[in-house]
Design a protein around this nucleic acid. Structure first.
Ligand SMILES: [Mn+2]
Ligand SMILES: [Mn+2]
Ligand SMILES: [Mn+2]
Ligand SMILES: [Mn+2]
Lengths: 225, 225
DNA sequence: GAAAAGAATTAGACATGGCTAAATTTATAA
DNA sequence: TTATAAATTTAGCCATGTCTAATTCTTTTC
């Protein structure tokens, strides 16, 4: 029906659309998928031909109502696989992304539903990203603030971390930072370094601002002190 | 490194080689993979170019020492996946083949090793086919006799059944026939129908000769009566 | 041991998903 | 508002894997 490559384009458009809202530009997609812009242009023509995207030359592209569920299905596969790999097959959370990124295109929906069942219908993947339900509902997914947006002294809970950089993930887990961890913001240096103190007593952790901006958080209404 | 399609060719050559021994002919491979002969010819050129097969035009093809382990790795993946789908994800043995046939090319060796561990290093897949070990040893695999080769009155144990036809598999399991089942050969009709009586009391089962020829068995040294 | 039949290969085409280099359109700056 | 820069698309090429039709072996058959 749809090649793995086309599915990756739809998934990419979905993600970029949610970050930047509005149309996704050719250059942005090319960068994200790591192909030349001309390659994106020709793929957009094919996808819009088949009505998965609404493509306006020189303006950008947007998923149609046909395209969205396909992207969500793949994202569901991806996140369920990640959860399964960590929970049942003893993978480290730093190494699940690549395996899931391949398999997401090849497992059946039945397979996905069965592992979801095994896992007890999990709501989020190991990095805190929400897993669409079997009927592709993602209403539980809210953006939340970013770690970089808080003030010194704030106590916040980690909600989501980016899942593509294994080194970052290893660094974070080494310092006890996972979705759910509560941290105090200890210092924000003028050159953009954010220092945190996780509540697990592992001592302070420093993160570059760019990383802090990519981590989603939830403000605790009242911190415990 | 190697496309999923090339892997399928190597796997096919391996299987056909073991059935017919000697070189595998273009026509046989074409039939098996379900492509035109000319397609096989051009693929054989590519595979022999890369030294996975030894190809002699007009004579046929054979796996090289480079090609064999690749075929075995894929077969290992396939059979472990089948075992996993039935044992851990509640698939019926009739429906595992297609899912495994896709996924076999996309899981990592690590994934395969992890599910093997989960399953307790199983020796055979749900259809009785032997699973190569992690170091690709298949010494445990012996051909055995076929069900069609026995005489009326023989008591034999089912060892392997063909795994590609879901209807046959459903029929067999409905009548209690699995690898391990012990059956008495009750009747062999002149037009080739073989009638069996499984030891589970589910009553006699009739099978066309062609099917009986595709089922591997193990003679019981002395039957129980 | 020719001729006919059968099997296999070659030739040429097509679809998919890439790339580079050359237009062309849109945005920015003078 | 025109010139320059940046983004995007078009044109043309390549690799993979497949097909059909034509050709060239091989094997049978008489
Ligand atoms: Mn992917
Ligand atoms: Mn993830
Ligand atoms: Mn396969
Ligand atoms: Mn099997």
């Amino acid at each position: 029906m749809l090649s793995a490559i086309m599915e990756d384009y739809l998934k990419a458009i979905y993600s970029l659309q949610n970050e930047t809202d509005g149309r996704v530009r050719t250059s942005v997609l090319a960068e994200y998928i790591d192909v030349e812009q001309s390659t994106v242009t020709s793929m957009m023509k094919k996808l819009s031909e088949r009505d998965f995207v609404q493509y306006e030359p020189y303006k950008g592209v947007e998923l149609t109502d046909t395209g969205v569920p396909i992207a969500l299905e793949i994202i569901r596969h991806h996140r369920l696989l990640e959860r399964y790999l960590t929970d049942h097959l003893e993978y480290d959370w730093a190494e699940v992304h690549d395996e899931a990124d391949r398999l997401e295109h090849h497992i059946s929906s039945k397979f996905a539903d069965r592992i979801a069942e095994q896992l007890g219908q999990p709501a989020v993947d190991p990095h805190g990203d929400p897993i669409p339900t079997a009927d592709l509902d993602v209403s539980g997914a809210k953006d939340g603030e970013r770690l970089a947006d808080h003030q010194v002294g704030d106590s916040v809970q980690i909600v989501r971390v980016p899942d593509t950089d294994p080194d970052l993930l290893r660094y974070l887990s080494k310092h006890g930072i996972h979705p759910g961890t509560v941290v105090d913001v200890v210092e924000i240096a003028p050159f953009g370094m954010v220092t945190l103190d996780p509540d697990n007593g592992d001592g302070p952790v420093a993160l570059p601002e760019e990383v802090a901006r990519s981590i989603s958080t939830q403000s605790l209404t009242q911190s415990s002190h």
